[in-house]
Design a protein around this nucleic acid. Structure first.
Lengths: 286, 286
DNA sequence: ATCTGTGAAATTTTTCACAGCC
DNA sequence: GGCTGTGAAAAATTTCACAGAT
């Protein structure tokens, strides 16, 4: 995940990984159509989306079937893990053969809820927002960006990709009208919580947050965060780690964290390196 | 997470979560400065970066100390988890009081390797790339974007934020010259693997990938992936799940995955919904 | 002969809960 | 009294390894 990223990725660990999250109370009657497992682990859901993309590519290349081994290699996971992930959505493989690409695509789309179209609203049409709005990839895959909002008078009123940019004060009405189910927040950090509140108030229950703040939301709202600065910091950690390994040929200073203060950059606070160089940390988006 | 978790975040799970990953052989001598634990769990590293940001904000607001409870609430995690995360980098809290904000910032920066400046290269200066290049937030936090590359003749030669856009064929030389440690790939999907290979060849060992492909790299290279489409699909899953819960007031059809085919969108392949509407899925970046 | 689906084991991550210090 | 640091328990995730289908 590191993804997370979680954060603009990757792996971004979601606070909703508690019990309640993906788990559903299991069926009532019993016996009959006990077709589907009770729940899908959060970690698996993230990977299912990746498999789906790769399957799309394979289909394009004319593949009829894939083995778990092949698909696993292409997506960089262990094949047993892949099979287990797929088993959560049902048994759609053929033993001795593999998976039918088209059938699996269909099942994954169903499992991920992609057979309902999701209308997406994007708030904050600055630098990053523009890039997101012009993305194209969304609409093609069932995520049409259906509404755009900003506060900047220079932006409100213009069209991007044929979509009118409205003032954020219209969020409530517009989202309800157009049945928005997902909100993407690409505003500067300080504005994000307010926008988030408006979205929640308008009934939006899933939010993708690009602003560098942790949003506070009611339990029933799902937030995923994409945070560039965090991603880079995670990589920086790995750079430092690799450096350490390289420098200590064997044992010696083999610590996970260098207790030494290397201080290429002046430590506590100095001229421009303290931290808030501009308070626009990485929310400098837009 | 991430997300993506990696994926444009979040939580992006990283394939590097195997043993080797964050673990280091533990110290030699013994006894003396056994200051630091042997390794930091991958999941913790991602959160440390988040704590660091929040601490920056707290410092700005003039806070001298924070309790684990406060910092946990602000970052949306459980306070015990936060304390455990912090314990991996050492014991810098004061019992009965909390943590000194400035001291903790310093320790986190050290642990994350932010006291070495990391030179970043960005490849692909299209839509998204432009947004990333103009980001500002990076440079302010020790991640100066130091080199830009593209293949488009209209882009090569221009300056963005004072940085010259070079042709990708210069990647090897330029990266070595400027000591690039982190590469960010924001090219269309099909170009990404080739660029990745060039970066690896040039000695770059950490890569942040925005292109919608799974990069194949040697073991010693760390890749994090930020994938917008995957993030949205994860949210779509949660939308569908919430819909189910809402529709079945109690038991009834309480399945994690609707076995019914709702098919608001024609299922297998129809006109424009099959999948590869344009092969520019979400790599439509740039 | 091959490849899926899956219990069971191993590992990682999270949470609990409390001893110890301020 | 308040809050950290951390063993130990619990939960989640990953991996193993193999029975069973084709």
């Amino acid at each position: 995940m590191v993804a997370d990223g979680g954060s603009l990725s990757a792996d971004t660990p979601s606070r909703a990984a508690r019990g309640e999250a993906v788990t559903l109370p299991q069926a009532g009657s019993e016996g009959v159509a006990a077709r589907v497992p009770r729940s899908i682990p959060e970690a698996s859901v993230a990977r299912l989306a990746v498999y789906l993309r790769m399957l799309g590519e394979l289909a394009e290349q004319g593949a009829d079937t894939v083995s778990s081994e092949e698909l696993a290699a292409a997506t960089g996971v262990n094949s047993a893990k892949l099979r287990k992930d797929l088993s959560y959505i049902g048994s759609y493989g053929i033993r001795g053969v593999g998976y039918s690409v088209s059938a699996l695509v269909h099942q994954l789309e169903r499992a991920l809820g992609l057979n309902h179209r999701q209308a997406v609203a994007l708030i904050g049409v600055g630098n990053l927002g523009h890039a997101l709005a012009g993305y194209g990839g969304f609409g093609g895959r069932g995520f049409p960006v259906t509404a755009l909002f900003d506060v900047d008078p220079d932006l409100v009123g213009i069209h991007i990709n044929g979509i009118l940019v409205e003032h954020v004060r219209a969020i409530g009405d517009t989202c309800r009208e157009r049945g928005i189910t997902i909100g993407m927040i690409a505003t500067p950090g300080p504005a994000a919580q307010g926008i988030c509140d408006m979205l929640v108030e308008a009934g939006v229950r899933c939010i993708l947050n690009f602003a560098p703040v942790v949003l506070q939301v009611p339990d029933e709202v799902e937030v995923r965060k994409v945070d560039l600065a965090v991603e880079l910091q995670i990589l920086a950690f790995h750079v430092a780690r690799k450096r350490l390994v390289a420098e200590s040929p064997e044992t010696e200073a083999s610590l996970a964290v260098p207790a030494t203060d290397v201080d290429v950059v002046p430590p506590p606070d100095a001229q421009t390196n303290g931290h808030p160089v501009n308070s626009t940390l990485n929310g400098g988006m837009r």
